[in-house]
Design a protein around this nucleic acid. Structure first.
Lengths: 154, 154
DNA sequence: CCCAATAATATGAAAATTCATATAAAGGCG
DNA sequence: CGCCTTTATATGAATTTTCATATTATTGGG
């Protein structure tokens, strides 16, 4: 036994509080991959944007911000920086002059492809720490939860 | 169908990437409760500290920072502010003069008790959006994952 | 006992993030 | 068509957060 109890002990409140567990697992598990992304020259928000653009190339700022889990004004600045680095480009939407659409550059796409591959490998390592049953269940459960949350806040 | 696909669609990369799902669910689900904590006058990191102190009253700064999922220097400043507001107190550890132990004040304890009660209610609402089987599984899975992650980074 | 090495906390300065709001484009309606 | 409302993005200023490091205390070895 160690005197400094860890939250996973599930004694007390936080160790069995769903939102704590989600935040802690997300934080700790992501930290492993974020260290990898850093070595590729990306900070966390930049990696998120890149990953989201893989799926939603040409998304407008507001939509990309929601996907990337960050605020609009923050995304605007991050897109600026990434555009300056040549990872992506911005174009006005020809159908709606207010919108700015964000596209991966060739370089950005290549980097994203490389990192998403690494991310899948890392994910496999994490899932390997679970029993096969739990590993098979966790993503569907989270997807269900996310769908429920999005319908609450559309 | 909507043109602006949501990540829960699980088409593409992020919608089925474990670390994205964890971050997204954590973010969205927590936002609901964080809005509640705000009304009680607490910012997110303050609520986290309060919740952790419920379980670990008298923890030292470094340990509390780990539990609260934040960096030591940030926690130091947050503890300052919360102490100034009378939510907690700091005392030097009599056995080790380097350490600062953090204790809830009476007011802090009362606030923490109230909010953890609310948090449990809110958690129940979230779990109610899942099937009973999934609801029963999610916390044990996350606890297992967290334990695995902590053994990797002790 | 002294010294070097380690550990815990605090702090200054830089960087990132938020918040409120300005700016600009569309949309709806009299 | 002109006007008022809504939507999308950008930006200034304040706040928060990080990073590196200073300070103070403890520990272990010689």
């Amino acid at each position: 036994m160690d005197g400094q109890q860890h939250p996973a002990d599930q004694t007390g409140f936080v160790g069995s509080y769903l939102l704590y567990l989600l935040a802690a697992v997300s934080e700790r598990a992501s930290a492993e991959f974020h260290a990898h992304a850093r070595k590729a020259g990306l900070r966390v928000p930049e990696w998120r944007v890149l990953a989201c653009l893989c799926d939603s190339d040409g998304a407008m700022i507001t939509h990309l911000a929601q996907l990337s889990l960050m605020e609009q004004s923050r995304l605007t600045r991050i897109v600026d920086q990434m555009a300056a680095r040549g990872l992506l480009t911005r174009r006005a939407d020809p159908r709606d002059g207010r919108r700015v659409l964000v596209y991966l550059s060739q370089e950005g796409r290549a980097l994203a492809a490389r990192l998403t591959r690494d991310a899948r490998d890392h994910e496999a390592q994490i899932l390997a720490r679970l029993t096969p049953e739990d590993a098979a269940r966790i993503k569907p459960i989270l997807q269900g939860l996310l769908a429920g949350l999005e319908e609450a806040t559309p």
